[in-house]
Computed example of a mutant assay.
Amino acid sequence: MPRRFLQRYMPRPDTLKRQRSLRFMAPLIADSRLWLLTRRSVANAFSVGIFCALLPIPFQMLAAAIGARLSRCNLALAVGLVWITNPLTMPLIFYANYRLGSLFLDAPVRIAPMRLSIRWLTEQIHDIVPALFLGSLLSAVVLAALANLAIRLIWRWHVSRHWKRRQRRRRARLEAEFDD
């Protein structure tokens, strides 16, 4: 993974510390280990961010920040990846998670009526919630693990390609010097 590419879009810790709304997080933001861009820290940040994004819980960004702190991965990436589930994608992702959970629980899928109501929701909630949480947990674990593996492989491939390119340039430069 190109470190310079990621650094271009990352917020600066000193800028975040100056924001009034984030002052309570100053000790967390000040920890320089949470801003490193290494293969391990980026891969783990993807895992933490995707895991938290796929869980149907409130305060996903806070959960991602705590997860980043515990796993010592890149804080900005972990918190930013939570926005995979934004107001546009959340219904689709959580419905897919619900279907997955229903499949594993061998429970019938509840079809929503044309007009949703609080009454229908309260009557069906005891059937919906277990399937939603199980499907969310399964997809979160699997996709977080796959993201971690994919980032590590992409990073390794990128570094390997960079080294080979440098080797070719050195060889060409040495051949040019030898020919002169």
Rank of each mutant, 00 (worst) to 15 (best):
Val82Asn: 03
Ala131Tyr: 04
Phe59Tyr: 12
Gly80Glu: 03
Leu174Trp: 12
Lys164Phe: 09
Ile29Ala: 03
Leu16Ala: 04
Leu37Lys: 00
Ala53Asp: 01
Ala107His: 14
Leu55Pro: 09
Phe51Lys: 01
Arg161Ala: 14
Leu92Asn: 06
Cys73Arg: 00
Ile118Phe: 14
Leu36Lys: 10
Gly67Arg: 02
Leu28Met: 08
Ala176Pro: 01
Gln167Lys: 07
Arg99Val: 13
Leu28Tyr: 01
Lys164Asn: 11
Ala172Met: 07
Ala140Ser: 09
Thr122Val: 13
Arg161Tyr: 11
Ala45Leu: 04
Val79Asn: 03
Ala65Cys: 03
Arg115Met: 10
Met90Glu: 13
Ser117Tyr: 01
Gly101Trp: 01
Ala76Gly: 02
Asp127His: 10
Asn148Pro: 08
Trp35Leu: 01
Ile29Leu: 10
Phe178Ser: 15
Leu143His: 08
Pro27His: 03
Asn97Met: 07
Ala68Tyr: 01
Met61Leu: 13
Pro130Trp: 03
Ala145Arg: 00
Leu34Gly: 06
Ala96Arg: 09
Val142Met: 04
Leu54Lys: 05
Pro58Ala: 11
Thr85Val: 06
Val109Asn: 12
Asp106Cys: 12
Ser102Pro: 03
Trp35Ile: 00
Thr15Trp: 11
Leu121Met: 11
Leu103Ile: 12
Pro2Leu: 14
Pro91His: 06
Glu177Lys: 14
Ala150Gly: 10
Leu81Glu: 02
His158Tyr: 05
Ile66Pro: 02
Val159Met: 12
Asp14Pro: 11
Val159Asp: 14
Cys52Gln: 11
Leu103Cys: 11
Ile111Pro: 04
Arg69Gln: 14
Thr15Lys: 10
Arg33Trp: 05
